[in-house]
Design a binder for these strands. Structure first.
Lengths: 151, 151
DNA sequence: TCCTAAGTAATAATGATTACTATTTAAATT
DNA sequence: AATTTAAATAGTAATCATTATTACTTAGGA
């Protein structure tokens, strides 16, 4: 698809999402979303900040962080990694998935049934030598669902 | 399986792995690995540090971080999240996997063939309401493999 | 055009992680 | 068993990513 057209459409989608959630459409939000959407490099905060600063010289780092969090909440972007605020470790090497609650950051193990296995995509070997596979399923855990219902 | 036996076996495995890689078997390494291996909670660094300190009062935070990195290198443990040193973002909502190079931290998109799809495990819904799924394939990318060959 | 809560800039603070250096120790060698 | 030595550690300082605070600005509805 035409990239410019694609970007235009995605920005319309962003505006729509803001309206639905009662969030304001600010130039900063559009600029920051635009930087993430146009890149295929999975940019980090610093990269986004530098790029936006070119057009908007006194944007602050704080705004970039806050805006990225908002865009995540709007389901317009997501993080490739660093879901959790700090590193967490696992010594269980048997193949299993993780359910990560986006509200309370709890991590649950999802063990596979005896007949199940984790399936690699056909193109997986294209980019290098695979060591392991890590499947994160993100959502709201039962405990938080219950808590939210009560409020 | 008997948990104590399991832990004993895993610690033997750790010792073996250290010998193979020419790394020393230190009490700190065993204690820190033991804490991760015995827990089902995917503990964070602070939790591990506090637990190890009970038996080894003057272990340092630095040692915990260094040791966890070593254990990762030995393939005895892995991180549930926070592979990358900083957060990175993606605005592409079409289902695809990510190949993350553990050497250079580069992230590559693995797009699915038209007939492929990401398969959820049967038990996935057990823990809560799913929002999305994030598949990280970890390994060494072609660029790094090439670089390593030349040295 | 005015009003007001949401959003922002500038800066300070926090919290996680890494680096440095003197000291200790695992384990190979004698 | 004693010696040796490079690897690992403790203690502390420094760095880096991220979040909080506060006063100011602005989007967008009345």
């Amino acid at each position: 698809m035409n990239k410019e057209l694609y970007l235009k459409e995605r920005i319309e989608e962003l505006k729509e999402a803001c309206h639905i959630k009662g969030m304001r459409v600010t130039p900063q939000r559009i600029a920051i979303f635009n930087e993430v959407a146009k890149s295929c490099q999975h940019p980090d905060v610093e990269t986004i900040y530098e790029a936006v600063k070119d057009k908007m010289p006194n944007v602050s780092m704080d705004t970039v962080y806050r805006t990225l969090a908002s865009l995540e909440e709007l389901d317009m972007i997501f993080r490739v990694d660093n879901q959790l605020p700090k590193a967490r470790f696992d010594a269980d090497k048997t193949p299993h998935h993780h359910f990560i609650c986006t509200q309370c950051n709890e991590v649950y193990d999802i063990f596979l049934e005896p007949d199940e296995e984790i399936i690699l995509p056909k193109n997986a070997n294209k980019y290098g030598k695979i060591k392991d596979i890590n499947v994160q399923i993100r959502g709201i855990c039962n405990k938080c669902l219950e808590k939210n219902r009560k409020q």
